[in-house]
Every structure is written in C-alpha cells, then in structure tokens.
Design a protein around this nucleic acid. Sequence first.
DNA 1: TCTGGGGTCCTAGGACCC
DNA 2: TCTGGGGTCCTAGGACCC
Length: 421
Amino acid sequence: MIALIDCNNFYVSCERVFDASLMGKPIVVLSNNDGCAIARSEEAKALGIDMGTPEHMIRDQLQAHNVRVFSSNYTLYGDMSRRVMMVIKELVPKAEIYSIDEIFCDMSNMPFTDLAALAAGIRETVMRCTGIPVSVGIAPTKTLAKMANRYAKKKFREIGVYCADSKEKTEAMLLFTEVADIWGIGRQHELKLQTEGCRMAADFIRLPQEWVLKEMTVVGYRTQMELNGTPCIKWEEVAPAKKNICTSRSFGQLVTSKREIQQALATFTSACARKLRAEKTCATSMHVFVQTNVHRKQDEQYLSSIVLDIPVASNCTTELMKFSMTALNILFKPGYKYHKTGITVMNLVPEKQIQLGLFDTAQRERDEKVMKALDDVNRQYGHDTVRIAKQEFNKSWKLRSNFKSKRYTTQFSELAPIKAK
DNA sequence: TCTGGGGTCCTAGGACCC
DNA sequence: TCTGGGGTCCTAGGACCC
C-alpha cells in the first residue's frame, strides 16, 4: 500500500506557524509579483476566493473581509518543507518527495496492520515537530493514494486520513471524485471525457481501453490502470537529475530600456548558474526569451526567443552571462514595453564529464575557484551579496513583494521574537 | 494599474541514413 | 506511366503537474 502525505494549505500553514494570531482567520498567499492567489486558508476558500485569481480582481473582497494577505516567501516555505519531509522520512522505510508539500510513502513493509492508525500517528508527529497539519491518503497505487488524500480532506477533515483498503472504500471515492479532480487529468482531457458523457472517476475506469489510448495516449491509459488498482507509476526515491533549469520573472513594472533587461537577465543567469553548480551539472545550451505583457491588449506585443549552443559545457556565471547577453542583443528590439524575460539552461551534463573544447584553457580551473568562493559567500550572507557587475541593481524591474513575512528559520536577523512575561 | 514560476513526458512529423 | 521501405534522431508543441 502507498500513502500520499500532503500538507494542508501549505504556504498558509507556514505563515501560521510563526504568527498564532492568524489561526481561524482568512488568509491568502500571493504568487510572485503579488500577482495571483496561490494558497488560501479554509476561511478564505469559504469566501469564494479561487485558486489562481489575480489579486487586483479580488482586492475589494480581501479588504471587505479583512483577509490577511502575504507575498510568497519561498525561503521560508522551502525550509519548512525540508523539516516536514525529514520528520516523515524518519517514520517510514521508503519515501519519495513529490513536491514542496507532498511525499509518497511505501507502507507495504510496515510492522503494523492498522495503516489508518499508523497514518494518524504520522500526522500527529509532524504537527508536534513542525506545526504543519497534513492529510494522509492510503491506497494500492499512487493515483488512488492521491485520490484518497483528497477524499480525506473533503470528507474526513478532522481525522485527516482515508485508507482505501477495500473494494467498497475505493468505490466510494471513485463515485465521489469528478474526472477533473483525478491526478493526471487536466482541462483538455476533462472536456473530452465530458463529451463522452463521463463525469465521475467511477465512469472513467469503465471506458474502453482503446478509446482511452486513442484520445488520451498512454498517459491517460496509465491513469486508468492505476485507478483500477494496477500500479504503473514507478518509485523514484532519489530524485532523477534535472534535465532543464529555468529562471524567469515578470518585472515589477513594465521596462523599456535594454540596460534594465540586461540587469534582470544577468541576475537570472546568475541564479541558473548557481542552481547548476548546486546540482553539479553543466549546461550545453540555453534558451533565452523576452516578452511583452499579453494581458495588455492596448500595447503592441512582442515575444521572441532563441536557443544558443554552449560549445564547452559550463556552469560558470560569467561564461553563461556572455552567452545570455549575446542572446539578448539579438532579441531586444527598442520601442516595446517589456514584461518578462528568462533563461532556461538545457542539455545538462554531469560536471565531471565535460568535453573540453579545442581552445579551452586553464581559465576553467580559475573560474571554478572563483565560483566556489562566490557560492560560499552568498550562501552565508544571502544570494547576490557578491555579484557580477552586469547585475548592478537599478531594481525598477524587481518583483513586487509588498506583504512578505520574515525568513524566520534561515536568517538570524529575522528570527521570530519571543516575549517573556 | 494590476494576471506566477518551474518542471516532465509524449507524440507527430521532418531530416537523414542505408 | 512508373516514383522503396525501414529505421533513428531531433524538435516543436501539447498536455499535465505543483
């Protein structure tokens, strides 16, 4: 049996751990740039605030109901996630971190027969150690475990556990779950299924296999198999190496000058290079794009991108910047109001196996030392404490982040204060 | 005025080879 | 008038995830 443990309203719960006055209040966490609502407390959901709604469309509602609003604080959420995962991994023999707030656990070799009771124990331990509430779904496959987790949240909120260990209990949640809420079925497949007269998961599992293969490819077929109790999705206890690494952001305000886009892109390139070094990989090509704001119908639109080969695979900030700046020189056209830029480094290869170019020199060794020093300093004092000249901060392009909480767990200067009476 | 960011996998079709 | 066939590799685009 497989358990899927999922943190409840994770970002909101993280904020609550450090501010008890937030309990029971409606809370919303916004995406980067304070753009959309991406996490909501139960109280906020009850007000009808939907996932992904732009902030400016719900601003009145937020004020009217005194909703507490936060900018996203990924430093805090990332660290809280690490803690939750660490606690859970201590309690089960085999686990796979699936996302910042979810983890699959293999429950097949546990020395307990009552899995629901075991799950309740895990919930309680995570709460005690981290302050984060979680829900647990248990079932024979990953897709069913995801469904059981959702079912637990919807139908057994207080218990927070659902164990689909019998035909009847599995059938109950298949009858309850709409096709759109099945893990692996998105907007397009939902529409197809609806025209086929298929509304609930219980209908979907009965569709002929030929139809599913033809209309939803093997991906949909695997989902169907999983819902029928046959595992098709393998375990990945150690995260497979990344194939691409991307850093991109919308600007806090529209930008017209090339110089400012250069600064932004240089900063994103630096972030990509740092991520590459953390993964111990090098990139052999990069994709760079610039674009205007597609939502502004009144503005002339421009979107362009380019892929450049990197002759000798690299994770050196200055080296990658040379290429991304070249790309920008090709892409940039004056006269547009730019909204976003970004870089994806691709075709990653392990640091150790780089094919040296014909004209490669001892430069590489020196670069490595410089990058290591740069990473060491920045790890200790915060990203971009030491940076490359091109990143020079003008900041007009910087993210909006007007409601950010402290980095309570990773910066000494931002620790939560404790009042002693 | 204001609409996130970072990923993966699959397929179809073109280029190329023998 | 007749105009091979089979295989691999690569890429763009679609769909999905959190």
